[in-house]
Amino acid sequence: MAEPFSAFMARALFDPERGYYTRHIRTVGSRGDFSTSATLSPSLGHAIADWLKAESHLQPHVRHIIEIGAGDGSLMQTLRKSFGWWARRRFTFHIVETSPVLRQEQQKKLGGKFTWHTDLAAALASAQGHAFIYHNELLDAFPATLVQWNAAEQRWLEVWVPEQLHAHHLDPAHYSALRHTSFADRQRCELHVSVRDWLHQWTPHWKSGAMLTIDYGDAFPQLYHRRPHGTLRAYLLHQRLTGTDIYANPGRQDITADINFTDYTAWLQALGFAEVSQHTLAEFLHAH
């Protein structure tokens, strides 16, 4: 079956029966697939707790904290523990989790002091739109639209699976890569159309608070410097796979692409959300 790469990635990661995140992810022990910054060190949880306290001083009416995509639950656990009893009582803690496997894992680890939701709009509804939101390594798992530059014809084509090139139907106004016309022939870029669509779904329900985004990426076009094949890769039992190996084990391996922060911030800006700070993770940990 031929399909756009984004549809393949969506199935490989989130198919209800066979998706990597929905069914096959392992979270426990040394065989676990999670070895993110959150699980490796408690310092990120302490830093986010400190950031939340600072934000709470600026907007004391906000009493809800939402983590989107909470993995094995360790980040939320560290964060809540590092609050004193006063802050723990002050806030209601929410987790947005689409994966039933991870949700079960989180409930086992965290117990009854949290509220789970399957989408962010529902979590925001229960917070009346006033919430502090954070997510760590969430966006890089959103299905990416893959495009390839044709220098001779001076146009971008969309990559399908199995590999074929098709005309795309995207508006270049929304994607910096589609406005870039000086790449070498066959340069590949990933467009997070799915992230933009997702922002459009839930941001109308968000009235006040602040959102912390932590993810791996760069500004455009630096993101693609010396990366003619783009940033897409898969991880199978901690082994890194690129090229057509990404298509080999759908549902068994994680697939990820770096975030184009130029686009991400522009999308939020257009929706009425201002960027108030930008740091490397090291700077953020140092500041908090």
Partner: peptide, 15 residues
């Protein structure tokens, strides 16, 4: 360069 980055956004009215 490519790295983990932290962004904070706020609704315009709160920024």
């Amino acid at each position: 360069g490519t790295a983990f980055k932290c962004f904070v956004h706020r609704p315009q009215a709160c920024a």
